[in-house]
Amino acid sequence: MLTKQQIAQRIAKELKDGYYVNLGIGVPTLVANYIPDGMNVTLQSENGLLGMGPFPHKENVDADLINAGKQTVTTLPGSSFFDSSTSFGMIRSGRVDLTVLGAMEVNDRGDIANWKIPGKMVKGMGGAMDLVASAKNIIVAMMHTNKAGESKLLKECSLPITGLNCVKKVVTNLCVLDVTDRGFELKELAPGVTVEMVREATEGRLVVEGDIPVMTFV
């Protein structure tokens, strides 16, 4: 089974030279740690920064320079700042090549729920609904099951959804799945995980064809 870091590391294999990428809060943020050397990937932060750099050293912290998770960050040569309307203009018009998000639930048609638990959690959707409504390539990074051991890969989402038919790929602690018309297609297994373990942990339609390779990270 994968750690959160390994989930991020596996997702980093999906990056391509020249990509503009938006990383959500949590595990998706960790993907930035695994951008291959020499690959030119530009991170977009929807609060108004393109070309996000690493966290600052203590002496360079600037309260006016944060990412969408409200963390202090830095710029890089070629970075730009812009207002929130311009930021979501980039997102809605399809300029962002890859979006990586966390999720509470995903169903086998690619619907995602990640913004609200009625009566329990009232935080809001932030930019997630805009991202999932427009991004052409959405990968979800999440644990395969919730804390109660229940599947998060479902026939139908039980929570209020964030967007319809938008998730293309899911990377969990157990496996890599593509979301297609047939449901969740098993593509790779995490080291030490069997097809049976994935079946057991997946409530939605699961498609297993041929020998499923064990994932690699480089």
Binding site: S84, F88, V122, M125, G126, M129
Partner: peptide, 9 residues
């Protein structure tokens, strides 16, 4: 609660 891009626009 409204989507952030919708709020901006």
């Amino acid at each position: 609660l409204i989507p952030q891009g919708t709020l901006a626009e």
